[in-house]
Design a protein around this nucleic acid. Structure first.
Lengths: 227, 227
DNA sequence: ATTTTTTATACTGTATACAAAATGCTTGCA
DNA sequence: TGCAAGCATTTTGTATACAGTATAAAAAAT
């Protein structure tokens, strides 16, 4: 794969210490490639070609593709292999509706079960995000923004909840990444985040849920135009 | 696989007309085996052995296992292969919390977008379920019950919602299947269902959400003892 | 008797080879 | 020139073979 080395004896070894199997590495690699747009929606995946590109044989690559198919990032057409899944505007809207509901649920639970340290960590993430906003660093802002939303879900301490949230999140990432909102809307999003963090610190479940509701509904409005 | 035939020339062919690939068939087959308890939680899966049992080689079987790993039904331990995932009581509770939230969301949406025919179909399913209840046919009752819950989600016409619901549903099926409640509780569940269908027919989103909320919360109480 | 080391075995991880299916192109014919 | 049929090529689907690793058992040493 990417981080391979050729040793003196000519054997290929993987540089990482992680015991993760090859198909596991390929999964994360391909997932990133899809999210970042290296593999375009609707694009057909040729196994031998992609395999040579990654320096692996077809077997682990195919196993990785099956995994990603279950995640919903690629589609398996019988006898025609894998295709990067393409989402319609309705698909994205539907996903965001579910994501919104999941985050609201997570927020409510988090108010009850989150540790003070966890909330404090989120506050500092928020501060970092505001800094990126003021510096107009869109990419950095976007990344920290993601971390905050994921962080809220994590605070709920509910593994299946975090899992399905992450599943849908990974699908819309590709879309959101493109959505570059105007200055006013961006400012609005930051303000909403402030309200979210405040409600969380106050452990006010209903207010938090309401804040998340409007924030994520607005989020869809912000993205809608580009889908 | 199950429906294989040996032809005169000795070649194995699959009887089904479906164009589904072999690993696809294995996925559904294994999923059923796990849900129905043929493969017990914590049990290690030996690829060669299971492959011979199913009449397939290791390659498509492994691909199927990767798929199921992404679904969360099996766990992949590096260098030790696949193990049927075991869920703790907290895991199950967490899943049911999410399922409850998802079904409430689906119910609210369904009230707005479901077709009259769709609601009527659900009513007739409910009637069938009541019949099974009165006849004390537990297994039949259980199956129709599942169909109703899945049906409510389907009415929302939101594919990702249905998908994640189905994902979690498949995991708790194994558990719910065991939960045999007493007569009083069973009667309560049926009564709750009547309220759910009524609220749906009235397209009363808030009432429906409330009914689903209590029904599914009670569902957890009913199952809790056996986990 | 217990612990450690060695060795054998069994299973997983990966690659390669083969078979079947689909697609595209060429050639023949109207 | 347009169309169709057949052939060639490409690609997926499946099986098998080989290499690496973990586990368990047996033997040796303390």
């Amino acid at each position: 794969m990417a981080s391979e080395m050729v040793e003196a004896n000519g054997r290929r070894t993987v540089a990482t210490i992680s015991r993760q199997s090859l198909h596991g590495e390929i999964v994360t690699r391909l997932r990133d490639m899809i999210i970042e747009g290296d593999l375009q929606p609707g694009e057909r995946i040729y196994e031998t070609q992609l395999g040579e590109e990654l320096g692996v044989s077809r077997t682990p690559l195919r196993e990785a593709l099956k995994f990603l198919a279950s995640e919903g990032l690629v589609e398996l057409v019988p006898s025609r292999g894998a295709v990067v899944k393409r989402f319609s505007a309705k698909d994205v809207e539907d996903m965001l509706i579910v994501l919104r509901s999941l985050e609201m649920l997570a927020g409510r639970i988090a108010c009850a079960v989150a540790s003070d340290e966890g909330i404090a960590r989120l506050r500092s993430l928020h501060d970092a995000m505001v800094k990126h906003y003021k510096a107009a660093e869109r990419l950095e802002y976007y990344k920290v923004n993601q971390q905050i939303h994921t962080g809220i879900v994590a605070l709920a301490n509910n593994a299946p909840l975090a899992e399905v949230h992450g599943l849908l999140q990974s699908r819309v990432k590709r879309i959101r990444f493109i959505g570059h909102e105007g200055a006013e809307r961006w400012a609005g999003a930051v303000a909403e985040h402030e309200g979210i963090i405040a409600a969380l610190e106050a452990r006010d479940a209903e207010t938090l849920a309401r804040e998340l509701d409007t924030h994520l509904a607005n989020g869809w409005e912000r993205v809608k135009s580009v889908v």
